[in-house]
Nucleic acid binder design. Sequence first.
DNA 1: CCTCTTTTCGGAAATTAATTACGTAATAAA
DNA 2: TTTATTACGTAATTAATTTCCGAAAAGAGG
Lengths: 306, 306
Amino acid sequence: MCPPICFEAQFVTFLRQGAICMTSETNLLSLLERQLPSLNKSESKVAQAILQNPENATRSSIASLATLAGVSEPSVNRFCKKFGATGFPDFKLRLARSLASGVRYVSRAVEFSDDINTFPRKLFDNAISALMTAREDLPLAAIERAVDHIAQARRVFFFGLGTSAAVARDAEHKFFRFNVPVSTHEDPMMLRMLSASGGVGDVFFFISHTGRTRVLVEAAELARQTEATVVSLTHEDSPLAAQSHCCINVDVEEDTDQYMPMTSRLVQLVILDVLASGVTLRRGESFTPYLARIKDSLKDTRFPTS
Amino acid sequence: MCPPICFEAQFVTFLRQGAICMTSETNLLSLLERQLPSLNKSESKVAQAILQNPENATRSSIASLATLAGVSEPSVNRFCKKFGATGFPDFKLRLARSLASGVRYVSRAVEFSDDINTFPRKLFDNAISALMTAREDLPLAAIERAVDHIAQARRVFFFGLGTSAAVARDAEHKFFRFNVPVSTHEDPMMLRMLSASGGVGDVFFFISHTGRTRVLVEAAELARQTEATVVSLTHEDSPLAAQSHCCINVDVEEDTDQYMPMTSRLVQLVILDVLASGVTLRRGESFTPYLARIKDSLKDTRFPTS
DNA sequence: CCTCTTTTCGGAAATTAATTACGTAATAAA
DNA sequence: TTTATTACGTAATTAATTTCCGAAAAGAGG
């Protein structure tokens, strides 16, 4: 057995030989793409073969992949080790995981060269990846405090502008069920006046992707000067967050589509679902008949199921 | 080589022997859990060993897993085949995929016993899984036709009620950018009157989870009697779909949360993103400065980034 | 309770796959 | 041109998986 120092030396050698470091979270596919230019001949053959049909690569043996790439089996093996795997099977496993995470490209903008077969998938990929990222790092403490505030609220106001107005509207459709007066407003004058009118037990819930919209920040300032509680669903490092008693951080990597917000609002919506569920749980099991009654009230508005 | 009939006979035999059918999308972990009671002694040992630490199972060889489960290697192999894999490595791959999808349980409702550490994750899991399911089966043809209609439209009306009203509002915020008059309405009277007022080039876009809301279906009928085009984003087998020239099927497995719609609207939103992107692509690259101008118009409403 | 049938399961061989060792060719450096 | 280094493949080795077959256990019928 080697003493520890020996292992270390081996590891240094290993790095020298060009091992490619990868955090466990990085997507293997995109790593391959990025590294492609820096690989040597046979390695890049292997990389191309894999990228060309990654799904297939996870199913093949080292022999068939080697044939496909036009290299020898040891080359494939070396390739795998270079990318941090212990060997070929391990590499396949990592690859499968990357594929299954479903999001082939970490986050890719739609391009004008895309066609119907590519861009819808990209958009779904982006949406999924945004939710997965958010899931990994949920601000549970803030969520819990927000639930506390809402569950005890006398009134709740949801304020959002632009895309966030739709989110606020959605929130209104959820939270009215809790026996608390809920409203949404978009008129800046109303925002200011309502904010200034806040009192104990009022919750002003601000929704904003940037957290920098003047109208909202100023309304939050006004609300802050009252006895009311200011909750925000926005980016942590923003003027709006600074004005909040409780900020639920939504730090979605900037939307890849340049011209329309896409993914951030999805995360906001799911977090609002979380809050609504949190309040429901707080209300306790005895509350469900009430929710059921609300739901049933819609029965007669629909055509019966055949 | 066997003639086809032989294969078929083999397949029947295979099923007789208790092969467990699994669509490619079902989560392997939950399948294992479900089937656990119906397995025989050694099989259930294997299943338990896997469920107890699935992550570890993907990393072990058939030998170590067999030892861990206290059975022989062939038993593990038979187990794998029973679950549709071609063998142990293939099974590991499927398992890895299931794990990586991150959504351990296909779709689980929040329960009153849940706490802050479990229910937010469940909701995110459900949302992600809904989007992943939808992504696998995108109605591309319908999407393409809808994009055609919208891209050529003279006017577009987005009609949705309840939760779908928020979705419609979101759509409005996207589609106004295309130089086409867009509006959203919730008043049933307005819906009827507007629908009846349709003409060539008008697109009536109905959004509904159930596709059975009377008000919407009736409005669609009225619109259908005009020269206008009726597009719907709803369930394929619904009265609303029946009234549509073009129905984009959203077939999200019924929301697990009993009292509030959760996941279906997310899919609807992303599909609307897809449509908006589709129209943008149709408009061509020369259109982007225009989009940029719209975006820039908001600059002065925000506090500058520090 | 016994016998026969069916199913379950593991041992060992056979097969297949992956890895290592080593040598040659190619490339870069001296 | 020589030497050192890296890149790559053949062949040998090792490991892992699968198949085959028989023994044991569990049920079915008498």
